[in-house]
Amino acid sequence: MKGKTCGLCGKADGEVRQDYRAPNGRLARNSVSFALSWILPAESCKDNTECRMKYESIQLEKKINVHGEDSTCFSVEPVLRCLPGCSPVKTTSVNVGFKCFADDSSRDLSNIFDESVDVRESTEAHLACSCSPQCS
Rank of each mutant, 00 (worst) to 15 (best):
G3C: 13
C6V: 01
G7E: 06
G7I: 05
L8C: 15
G10P: 01
G10H: 03
A12M: 12
A12G: 13
D13R: 00
Q18P: 04
Y20N: 07
Y20I: 01
R21C: 09
R21Y: 03
A22P: 02
R26A: 08
A28V: 01
A28T: 00
R29D: 14
R29T: 03
N30P: 02
V32A: 11
V32H: 01
F34K: 00
A35D: 05
I39C: 11
I39D: 09
I39Q: 07
L40S: 12
L40K: 14
L40Q: 12
S44V: 04
S44F: 03
C45A: 11
C45F: 03
C45Y: 01
N48K: 14
N48D: 07
N48E: 08
T49Q: 05
E50C: 03
C51D: 02
M53E: 03
Y55D: 07
Q59V: 15
Q59T: 15
E61K: 02
K62G: 14
K63D: 10
V66Q: 10
H67I: 06
H67W: 00
E69D: 04
D70P: 07
T72K: 12
C73N: 01
C73A: 11
F74I: 09
E77D: 14
P78R: 12
G85Y: 00
C86S: 10
C86G: 13
T91W: 11
T91E: 10
T92N: 09
S93T: 11
V94M: 15
N95L: 05
G97I: 03
F98M: 08
F101A: 12
D103A: 13
S106R: 06
R107T: 03
D108S: 13
L109A: 03
L109I: 00
S110L: 06
I112T: 05
E115T: 03
S116N: 14
V117S: 11
V117W: 11
D118H: 08
V119I: 13
V119L: 14
V119E: 14
R120D: 14
A125N: 11
A125E: 09
A125H: 11
A125D: 08
A125Q: 12
L127H: 02
C129F: 07
P133W: 05
P133K: 13
S136P: 04
